[in-house]
Amino acid sequence: MDKRISSADEAIAGLKDGMTVLMGGFGLCGIPENLIAAVQRKGTKDLTIVSNNAGVDGFGIGVLLEKRQVKKMVSTYVGENKLFEQLVTSGELELELNPQGTFAERIRAGGAGIPGFYTPTGFGTMVAEGKETREFDGRQYVLERGIRGDFAFIKAWKGDRWGNLIYRKTARNFNPMMATAADYVIAEVEELVELGELDPANVHTPGIYVNAIFAGTHEKRIERRTTRKT
């Protein structure tokens, strides 16, 4: 078994207009830079993108917005991108906002065969409008649905040809859940290693979830560089 493929472009050969793609990352940290660039090159349109944020102008998912390739974003916070705001305001881009914990759990549930779950988050707010609610043990909960994608784009630190993955620091974020919740899961890694090189007790995403893997080059742009003097 060998899940290695030569490039991001080859990996998304099956991506078609109108599909739903889950993309890992928090801000610009742990985003699948190479796969996003490949989608821009391919020019696929009317995509629904499930991602915590929408990148910034000119980087990350921002580059797909520039070419009007995105029909809908499912996100939790999208404040870093002027073009995004213009497209939403003009009605060219549909936006579904989720509480971040609900967003994470919807994806986890989608990957774990759970179609819906009850959460206390958002009860009585705009988020609960039109959704079923139910009382358990004296507290009110909102029914939320699982999310699945046609594709998931994962960014990991190291991976092997069976698709076992480990992530680095806070670049893990939504990547592990997204790797479980799509029909075709592609991992771009900084380093492809031989079988047996990853510590089996510390694999974060077991290879069973991953369909294709390649080593990419990563700019890893920093959104807010904050430092101390001493």
């Binding site: 940290c29 994470a104 680095r168 893990r172 974020n173 592990p176 742009r221 920093i222």
Partner: peptide, 26 residues
């Protein structure tokens, strides 16, 4: 660049820190 807080600011670790997924976090 792989170490940021929820405000997307670069941060540092303290000894004894740990990392986990967003699903575990919530």
């Amino acid at each position: 660049p792989d170490l940021i807080n929820a405000g997307k600011e670069t941060i540092s670790e303290i000894p004894g820190c740990c990392y986990f997924s967003s699903a575990d976090s919530f």
